[in-house]
Design a protein around this nucleic acid. Sequence first.
DNA 1: GCACCGATGTGCT
DNA 2: GCACATCGGTGCC
Length: 221
Amino acid sequence: MAEPELTDLLPRDVLDRPSTEVAPDLLGCVLEHESPDGLVAVMLTEVEAYTGQTDPASHAYRGRTARNAVMFGPAGHAYVYFTYGMHFCVNVVCMPAGTASAVLLRAGKVIAGETLACARRTSAAGVRPADRELARGPARLCQALGIDRGLDGADLCAADSELRLRRGVATARSEGKSLIRTGPRVGVREGADVPWRFWLDGEPSVSVYRPHPRKTATSPG
DNA sequence: GCACCGATGTGCT
DNA sequence: GCACATCGGTGCC
């Protein structure tokens, strides 16, 4: 018999909840981008929750701007931002319109379209990344999937959207959440005290924890 | 494996 | 002007 449940879109009401509850539920789910170049799908292995205007580490902490407007909209859309002058990162918007919480997708395991993902991730120097590094880290995940700001606001719960979120194939999650681990979020200074990073224990595609980027110490010379 | 550093747009002070 | 939800390359262990 067919197995339609393997490709079910994630219902929007799953995302219409606090991001700290949504985040662990996204582990094992699949993000796929159907671009003109082809389809790449990634099983999520590491995420972080941001609670919006109450969270000093959130882009929404200081209120709504043109960049973060999507976060203030309804659940189930993609918030894509550009950072450090060269990288994109993607979030899943949670909670109803007016509440700007989201889940940052930090890492995943490529389960379809590996050739295309690898081509996108191959450096200018021609260095081909290892399989587990194809989508390890939020900017690498976006690069492997071909996500840029053109997908900001994309509906992740619509069948006709080119960027979609699906229920996971059978994973550790279906056997309980004992293999989900938590810890502080990566690279944040404010809000580093809350364990709102979630990952699948033992997954090689999980990014390495980094407390905070080294300060740009302007050495006197 | 870890430390350092440069690249470089956007939002905020 | 500066910090930033980052990464790739280099140097070293």
